[in-house]
């Protein structure tokens, strides 16, 4: 397959172009997604290509934007709705949690809805624009939640989400928008939902990392290798349903688990992964699972404070050596 070193946002953009080209039932709806191509240019050229009927700028009406997706999917479209920041999904909670997620349960019918949003503390936007709520949505039956950590997965997961017959929340990460990874240009390239990727193999420690923390974990693993510690790095890619088999298989082999995420630890994805390891790999654990997470504090604005709050490569590296002792 031909690949190109796409930026994360280009992966998203290419997925949208390809899926809108492939299926005229795919529409894109959200604040500023049309003319300007989104506040960060992620959706650029889509309106020029597919026209104002299928690419719609909405007013600032998050509840109704999500609801537009529910209703339009119920009558036969495959809508992609954008809620600009994860924090703004809070205004659309009812439509996502009480309506979209319950649709199949109540009606027995599919609801091919994709909700795209952006998370994480990469942008110095402060406490109401940088929060990480993936665990909240992963706790709701009826929702698929994906969180790509790179351009390739951003493209492949979004395409799968759009083709999926059930509501899927796609969490893009602000701090990764310009990061590159080789990405197949092919329109049949998909990344399956619910399947983790082992980004690096190793024997001594399993790291499970999400979103912006994946690249940091890979770098820390590289350094640990130089120190004689062999680290396996797993990116779940889909948060719900979690690829339990891949994680359990790895932890059973290494006996050690470190989970790295940008959300704070309490009641989080990291908590769930640790619980999984304890439940399924108890007899094979050689050390207590470790969680490296954001401090349980609000996201500040200045970038140095933001970075002080989340795990960096040094912290991860040190934790890897310690757990392997």
């Amino acid at each position: 397959m031909t690949t190109r070193p796409l930026k994360f946002w280009q992966g998203v953009n290419q997925a949208l172009h390809q899926e809108m080209e492939r299926d005229e039932k795919v529409v894109l709806v959200g604040e500023d997604v049309g003319g300007p191509g989104g506040p960060y240019g992620v959706t650029r050229n889509l309106r020029a290509t597919f026209g104002p009927n299928r690419v719609r700028d909405t007013p600032i009406s998050e509840a109704t934007i999500a609801g537009l997706g529910v209703g339009a999917a119920a009558v036969g479209l495959r809508p992609v709705v954008e809620l600009m920041f994860f924090d703004f999904c809070m205004l659309a909670m009812d439509q996502i949690v009480n309506q979209a997620a319950k649709y199949r349960y109540f009606t027995g019918r599919s609801l091919p809805l994709t909700i795209r949003t952006m998370s994480g503390s990469g942008g110095s936007y402060g406490a109401q624009h940088c929060q990480s709520f993936e665990a909240w949505f992963a706790a709701v039956p009826g929702l698929t939640v994906v969180m790509p950590s790179n351009a390739r997965d951003a493209k492949g997961l979004l395409k799968s989400a759009i083709r999926s017959d059930d509501p899927t929340l796609v969490i893009e990460t602000f701090g990764l928008l310009t990061a590159r990874r080789d990405t197949p240009v092919d329109e049949d390239f998909l990344v399956p939902l619910g399947v983790a990727e082992t980004r690096r193999t190793g024997d001594d420690v399993t790291v499970v990392a999400t979103g912006r923390m994946v690249d940091r974990a890979l770098e820390a693993a590289e350094r640990a290798a130089a120190d004689g510690v062999s680290v396996e790095v797993i990116d779940p890619r889909t948060i719900a349903p979690l690829d339990r088999a891949t994680i359990v298989g790895s932890v059973s082999r290494t006996g050690r688990l470190v989970v790295v995420q940008e959300a704070p630890a309490p009641f989080s994805v990291a908590a769930e992964v640790c619980a999984l390891a304890v439940e399924e790999c108890f007899g094979r654990l050689r050390a207590a699972p470790v969680r490296l997470c954001a401090e349980f504090a609000n996201v500040p604005t200045p970038q140095d404070l933001v970075e002080a709050r989340v795990p960096g490569v040094d912290t991860i590296h040190a934790a890897l050596l310690k757990v392997a002792e």
Partner: peptide, 8 residues
């Protein structure tokens, strides 16, 4: 304390 800036 300089943590939040203009929007807060």
């Amino acid at each position: 304390a300089g943590r939040n800036g203009s929007m807060h």
